[in-house]
Computed example of a mutant assay.
Amino acid sequence: MSSFELSGRKVLVTGGARGLGAGMATAMAAAGASVMLADVTKDIGEQTAATITANGGGSAGFVELDVTDDAQWETAVAHTVAELGGLDVVVNNAGIEVTQLLVDTDPDEITAMLRVNVLGTMLGIKHAFRAMRPGGAAGSGGAVINISSVAATIAFPAIAGYSGTKSAVDRLTRVAAMESGKLGYGVRVNCIYPGLVATDMGVKLAVETSGLGLFESPEAAVGAVVELTPSGRLGEVSDIADAAVFLASDAARFVNGVGLPVDGGMGM
C-alpha cells in the first residue's frame, strides 16, 4: 500500500519563510520529515522554523539563501546535509512576481524575475542533483519539486513576464527528469502549478491588476479568477502543501517529469 508518510526524509524548502513555502514545510514536517527552510528573510524564516518545531510537527531549521547565488546554494545544501543528516527532497519554491503591461515592460524587473524564478530553480536542481546522486553528500537519490504556476497554462493580463518564467520552470522540470534518469541519479523531478492563493503575492496581484484598470477593484479581480475556476474558489495553502507532500512521498514513486495542476481546474 502506498504511503504519504515522510518519516526520515530530509527536506530543503526555498522561500520557506512564509506563504506557500512555509505551508509546504509545515505539511512535510507534520508528515514526519525534518525540514530546512531557506530564505533571504532571516528573522521571519527563523521564527517560522521555531513555530514548526514548537507545534510538534517535526524538527525544522533555517538557513539564509539567495537562490540566485551559486556559492550560497553550495553552502546551504552542505549546511542542510550536515544539520539534518542527509537530503532527500528539495522544493524550489522561491519566486517573485512583477505585474506590468507589455507596453510598460521594465527590463530590470523582467531580469529580476528571470534570475529568481528561472536561474534560482536551475541552481536548486543543480545542487540537489550534486548532493543526491551516487557519490554525492547525501547520495541516496530523492525528489525535486519545482513550483511553477497556473500562469504557465493560462493567458491572464499583466503577468506576461511572470508567465514566461513559470513556463520555463515547467520545461526545466522535464529536462531535469530526463537527465536524472539518463545519468542514473535516482532523483525524480516534478513541478506543481498552483492556482491563485491569497498569500501576500496573490493579494498583490489582485491589487495591482485592478490598479492598472483591468478590473474595477481587487475584489473584482479575485472574482474573475474564481469565475475561471471550476471548483469555484481560490486555492488554499494547504491545497498546494498536500500536493507537495504527495510528490515527495513513496506514493509518487513512479511520478516523474510531470506538472501537477493544483488550481481547481483553472488551467484546464
Rank of each mutant, 00 (worst) to 15 (best):
S2H: 13
L6I: 03
S7N: 11
S7C: 12
T14A: 05
T14R: 06
G15P: 12
L20S: 07
G23I: 06
T26H: 07
A27H: 04
M28K: 11
A33G: 09
D39A: 12
T41P: 05
K42C: 06
G45Y: 02
A54W: 00
N55W: 00
G56A: 11
G57C: 13
G57S: 10
G58V: 15
S59M: 12
L65Q: 05
E74V: 08
V77Q: 08
L84R: 01
D88H: 09
V89T: 11
N93Q: 06
I96V: 15
T99N: 11
Q100Y: 04
D104K: 12
P107E: 13
L114K: 07
V116H: 06
N117P: 13
V118S: 05
G120Y: 01
H127C: 05
R130V: 06
R133C: 02
P134E: 01
G135C: 05
G135P: 03
G139N: 00
S140P: 01
I145G: 01
N146V: 05
T153G: 10
A155Q: 13
I159W: 06
A160K: 02
S163C: 07
S163P: 11
S167W: 02
A168G: 13
V169L: 00
E179I: 09
S180M: 06
Y185W: 07
N190V: 14
Y193R: 15
P194W: 01
V203H: 04
F215P: 14
E216A: 15
A220T: 13
L234M: 15
V237D: 01
V237E: 04
S238A: 15
S238I: 15
D239Q: 05
I240S: 04
V245H: 04
L247H: 04
A248I: 03
A248W: 07
G259Y: 02
L260K: 01
M268Y: 06
